[in-house]
Structure formats: structure tokens, C-alpha cells
């Protein structure tokens, strides 16, 4: 469903993404893990068409995001790390706006929007101005706008930011539901436990390249490690930090 081939992105002298290739199939939850500045967000932004790669191609559902962006974006949904939303619109108006952008069927929109506002606990706030929402409520609204469209590909950049434990749990359950329905999900997160728990495949990104990719078992094998948890494998593969080093 997602094919990323030899993608490179430079910002001046800095190589943010270096000849990166990825492939994600249908009904798969794919996790992108990496330290700060590893190139996760740039990779995701290239996939959704926010950043143009200097070289390489990205195909979403067979459509090249560079050459055929409109068709690719019709099947794509994106939740950014810091998702600014129109603060002067109400929650319902925002969802109506999104439905218009994606040319949703009116009936399906009303049914799905009401359903997801209910699931995310925003039904009572649907006619409130978004400017009055808390960060967590805005994040729930962004997720409602994504799920109501039933997209084929969902790309989430740090989606747990601002969510309370109940929200995190809810998101996890919804992602599993979407996977069962055949949706491809790409998730970037700092929370290793979440990646470990919900991702079918994990790619560890460091300095703009994938240093390891596979299931948790594959990664352990790759790291030639007997480490039991993903955190140890992650640290072994990405950082200079050594366990037991004297901290100041």
C-alpha cells in the first residue's frame, strides 16, 4: 500500500533522510521509532506530500504522491504532531469542512462524524468554538476528522501527545479496528511500549536511515541481543548511551 523508494531529503548541508526505502502492506500497523532528529517526521512529511524529496519516489495505493498528489491524498489521512486547527470554527463546522475537502457523501459524513465525536467524547462540544478546546480535545477532534473518513492509509505523527490514558487506550483500540478492516497505518512515536504493543512491523530510524526493520523478534535477532524489551534494542541500535554509565 505504501512504497517508499530511495528517498533523500537535504536541508542545506544536513541530510535529514538518506536514501531511505520502506514498504508497508495492507492491514499492517507500521511503527517508526528513532531518537530526536533521526528523520522520522521528515519521512512522514514526505509520505503525506508536505515535503518534496530531493530524490526518490513515494507511492500511496499505487499513486505517486509527487506526480499524482490529488488521487494519492484522497485515500490518505494524516494526523500531525502539532495539528493547528481553525480556532474560529466549531468542532462540527471543522468536520463539515474536512468532509467537503475530501468530497464525502453527506449521509456517510453525518453518520460517521456523529459516531466518532461520540467515541471521542466530544458530542456535547460539537457546537463549541475550537479555540476554547484543551490540547487533548483538539487532538481528539483531529482523530475524529481522520477516522470519520474511513481512509485506506492513516499516517500518525506522535498521535498520543496531549491524550490522557483513556484517550491513548481508545486510540489503540481504534487502530486495531482499522487494521482489521484492511487499513494501512504508519505510526511515529517516542513511546516504545506503545510501538511494542501495537505495531506489527517496526523500523528504527537513525541519522536519516533505517538501521533495523522487522518484528520485535526480527529486531532482537538483528541486534544479536538477548535483550528482552524493545527499549534495550532501540538504545543499542541508536545511541552511544551505555547502561550503567555514571550520570552527573
Amino acid at each position: 500500500m505504501i512504497e517508499m523508494l530511495n528517498c533523500t531529503k537535504r536541508y542545506g548541508e544536513l541530510v535529514a533522510v538518506n536514501n531511505l526505502s520502506l514498504g508497508v502492506g495492507e492491514s499492517e500497523i507500521f511503527g517508526l521509532l528513532g531518537p530526536n532528529g533521526a528523520g522520522k517526521s521528515t519521512t512522514i512529511k514526505m509520505m503525506v506530500g508536505l515535503v518534496r524529496p530531493d530524490s526518490g519516489t513515494i507511492k500511496i495505493g499505487g499513486y505517486d504522491i509527487g506526480r499524482d498528489p490529488v488521487d494519492a491524498k484522497k485515500i490518505l489521512a494524516y494526523v500531525p504532531e502539532k495539528g493547528y486547527v481553525y480556532e474560529k470554527l466549531t468542532a462540527w463546522e471543522y468536520l463539515t469542512f474536512i468532509s467537503g475537502l475530501y468530497d464525502m457523501n453527506e449521509e456517510a459524513f453525518r453518520k460517521n462524524a456523529s459516531e466518532y465525536l461520540g467515541i471521542f467524547g466530544l458530542s456535547d462540544w460539537k457546537d463549541e468554538i475550537i479555540g476554547n478546546f484543551s490540547t487533548g480535545m483538539k487532538q481528539r477532534l483531529l482523530l475524529s476528522a481522520v477516522f470519520m473518513r474511513s481512509p485506506k492509509v492513516v499516517i500518525l505523527d506522535e498521535p498520543h501527545n496531549g491524550l490522557d490514558p483513556k484517550g491513548v487506550r481508545l486510540l489503540k483500540d481504534l487502530l486495531f479496528k482499522l487494521r482489521r478492516e484492511g487499513t494501512t497505518i504508519i505510526l511515529s512515536t517516542h513511546i516504545i511500549a506503545i510501538a511494542e504493543e501495537i505495531c506489527d512491523t517496526i523500523a528504527i530510524v537513525n541519522r536519516g536511515s533505517v538501521v533495523a526493520q522487522g518484528t520485535r523478534e526480527d529486531l532482537r535477532h538483528y541486534a544479536r541481543s538477548s535483550d528482552k524489551n524493545l527499549e534495550d534494542i532501540f538504545l543499542r541500535l541508536t545511541s552511544d548511551y551505555e547502561d550503567g554509565r555514571d550520570l552527573p
Partner: peptide, 13 residues
């Protein structure tokens, strides 16, 4: 500018 991500990731040219 703050909301441009919505347009750029949607099928609106």
C-alpha cells in the same frame, strides 16, 4: 500558515 497542513495533505490543489 498554521492550517496549511490541512490543505496540503488533502486532495485540494
Amino acid at each position: 500558515g498554521a492550517f496549511l497542513w490541512i490543505m496540503k495533505t488533502s486532495p485540494v490543489t
